[in-house]
Write a protein that binds this DNA or RNA. Sequence first.
DNA 1: CGAGATTATGACAGTCACTGACAGTTGACA
DNA 2: TGTCAACTGTCAGTGACTGTCATAATCTCG
Lengths: 240, 240
Amino acid sequence: MRTRQQAAEAAEPAGAAARPGLRERKKQRTRDALLHAALELFTTQGYEQTTVDEIAAAVDVSQRTFFRYFANKEETTFAVQDMVESHFVAAVRERPAHEAPLDALRRALLDSWDTLGEVIEEVIPVELHMRTYQLIESTPTLLAAHLRRSSELEEEVARVIAEREGLDVDTDPRPRVVVAAFSGVMRLTGRLWGAGEDTSIESMRRVTESYLDQIGPALAEDWNRRCRGPERDGSGVHAL
Amino acid sequence: MRTRQQAAEAAEPAGAAARPGLRERKKQRTRDALLHAALELFTTQGYEQTTVDEIAAAVDVSQRTFFRYFANKEETTFAVQDMVESHFVAAVRERPAHEAPLDALRRALLDSWDTLGEVIEEVIPVELHMRTYQLIESTPTLLAAHLRRSSELEEEVARVIAEREGLDVDTDPRPRVVVAAFSGVMRLTGRLWGAGEDTSIESMRRVTESYLDQIGPALAEDWNRRCRGPERDGSGVHAL
DNA sequence: CGAGATTATGACAGTCACTGACAGTTGACA
DNA sequence: TGTCAACTGTCAGTGACTGTCATAATCTCG
């Protein structure tokens, strides 16, 4: 029930790009319907409280069919997250090589958020995705899954960073270390944002920026004294 | 089948400290037996491949009884991990107030590992615990659970750090940020150690130290320039 | 257009983690 | 020794998955 298959159906005769057959379109429609129904049910009545049977029933397919589209309940929750993540990785890849790694990560993140809305809207309403994110943060099972996925993303990003800098991830620890530190802070902001009231992307951006700014000062020797020294403050951000 | 209840039973008449009744001892014995059997089965045939029925059968109790001792399969896997973590938190609490936060965390970690063996050995053989840790790292479900638990630990540690520094976690982002960065790197080392060959605590210590040493350089502006400062070399543990 | 090859789907059976309810045992304690 | 409370086993039930097989819907090609 979203833009994708509508556009696809409409553009079928015209566009030279893609014109999937009826079968494909039907499948896509079923998948979208399942996804939409699942997220809607999860966010309204809770993840654990929603059974797969319910989701299947809402779309009027058998339970077995649900499992043909999604390996498990969890997977539906992260379908959109997947897109968001590749969007971010792509943004990292596009950063000019001269930027310092931490800086590149930061900018890539903020950049990718500029166009986040459109990416999400391709599949589901942004607002539903935001609710889903909060659901993830507040549901132990989902949070666990999310963290594991994040650690995989970390590895991928570390490789991208290593490539940028012409290093070997297995030889030089720095790519993984920056990414680990960066990700640690990102997860932190994700948690805080999820716990807060304001569910806008704008709010998330503000929280993130201010926390990233704290990496330098936080790692500094002495918190009481004003931080000195250049390398101490990775990327020279002292704010707050 | 370990030291705890043996000691308890033996010391029963003498020690003024504790002399649990028969009932208590029996319970403890059952729990230990279940824990031991579970870990042994998990590490030999795999977590997913081991059913709760098998574990219960190995100890000759009903499945229902297993679930009276452990809320779920997962929980058995983290029983020892729990102790290790509180041991670490305790170590952080004991660090002198004048140490810089990141430094205190690092020292607490290494300190706590000095006595890690004894702590673990109270419940199960260290070697079994090491195998368990590798199992966690290599089993998606368990890894996810582990990461979630770690994030809870993070929050706890952040509060300890905040207290040390006389700050409010909800006002000053720095406690959470250091801990986030630190934890990010720790998780990284955990992963690398788990993937490696050497399963000794010593090896883990080496990997950890060298990676922690890289936080500063990794966050620095420019990786191409030689980073100054001692923390550069990281004791040459670059392999895999 | 129609027959046969593909492929999605439904119906059914089965496993496994987990939970609630109830009854039978067993250690605790007067 | 007998009563009470805590443990435990048995049984039944739910919900997430998985394998299998028959059916029905597309697709392909003559």
